[in-house]
Amino acid sequence: MKLRLSPQTLVVLDAFLDSPQDWKYGYDISRNTGLKSGTLYPILMRLADRKLLETSWDTSESGKPPRHLYRLVPDGLRLARELRVSPATRRNGAAAWSEG
């Protein structure tokens, strides 16, 4: 299955590498990457569809609304790290990555 690795997708993958074990909120990723929701969410959805990203609901704080959380799975982390050390791929922007 092909994943289109746009420059924005690489930016999102990069954002997860800052603290790979931590869950992140959509709005925080948007602020940190500067990506609008209309760009960010399709990327998160594609990563989740490709089983590179796991999602969860944060319901820990009582009185606060539940919040969706995101974290890269090991395959996603591996891909993110491979691409981080490969700036040529990033410059090309639209490289394709095959899963499995």
Binding site: Y27, S30, K36, S37, G38, T39, L40, Y41, P42, M45
Partner: peptide, 14 residues
């Protein structure tokens, strides 16, 4: 509002 508009297009595409 802009967040919601972006999200709406994202859901429509999905």
């Amino acid at each position: 509002l802009f967040w919601a508009l972006g999200c709406t297009t994202a859901i429509f595409r999905h």
